[in-house]
Design a binder for these strands. Structure first.
Lengths: 112, 112
DNA sequence: TTATCATGCTACTAATTGTGTAGCGTCAAG
DNA sequence: CTTGACGCTACACAATTAGTAGCATGATAA
């Protein structure tokens, strides 16, 4: 069970997909960006507005990275999820249900 | 379909749960920590080793935050997921499948 | 033509956050 | 009483993000 430990050289190339995914998604704004694009294309500025006027510096950096990873693409209509990105989007949608229950639980814990 | 737009006052208190979740999960190491704890309890030091010797400063900060949000708890056996955290863990497991397909696709795209 | 406006995006500084290493206080074992 | 592991803090340095200004481009309109 601990046989994986050896593989865990934190080089860069052959890191497990899930870990690479976490590195990508675990950056500020990445999840939010995907969420806002979950069912519509948005222009740079519209997307920025949805994210509470994030710094364009970061937004652009994320967008580039996400495009490089084939999760987003860009056309005249703006930014949007690729097919692969949409699959990811569906997972986020599932997370939404979890989040609601989570928030509810936290709320009741604290009010009582 | 765009009827949600109005709700998007980016105040702070009544932010949608999913957005709060993204703020929490979208911090460096948070997803990874949850992943490493997905099916076993780990001590601080063991967990740190699993995460490639993250700085204990950040690790401890995340652990505190996650505990404050009832996603983790801590006992003599170390850190582990709460019931709520385990549900989240299951979502991450699902993400694992996505990540594999994603990596595969990226790989073939580039080799060709 | 010139003015207006929105678009995507870059530049630059300040503030926040993360990294890396050392090490403290506590405990159990030798 | 040394040794080692534990959870964790301190602190200086590096990297990332925030916040704002503004440019180049293209469309619209006077």
């Amino acid at each position: 069970m601990a046989s994986e430990t050896a593989k865990e050289s934190h080089g860069s190339a052959h890191r497990r997909p899930i870990v690479r995914a976490f590195e990508l998604l675990g950056q500020r704004w990445t999840l939010r960006i995907l969420w806002e694009l979950r069912d519509e294309r948005l222009t740079f500025r519209a997307l920025r507005a949805r994210c509470g006027e994030v710094s364009p510096t970061v937004l652009n950096r994320r967008l580039k990275e996400l495009r490089a990873n084939a999760i987003l693409d860009h056309d005249e209509a703006g930014y949007g999820l690729t097919e692969c990105g949409q699959e990811l989007g569906r997972h986020l949608l599932a997370l939404n249900d979890w989040a609601r229950r989570w928030a509810e639980q936290l709320g009741t814990d604290r009010e009582a």
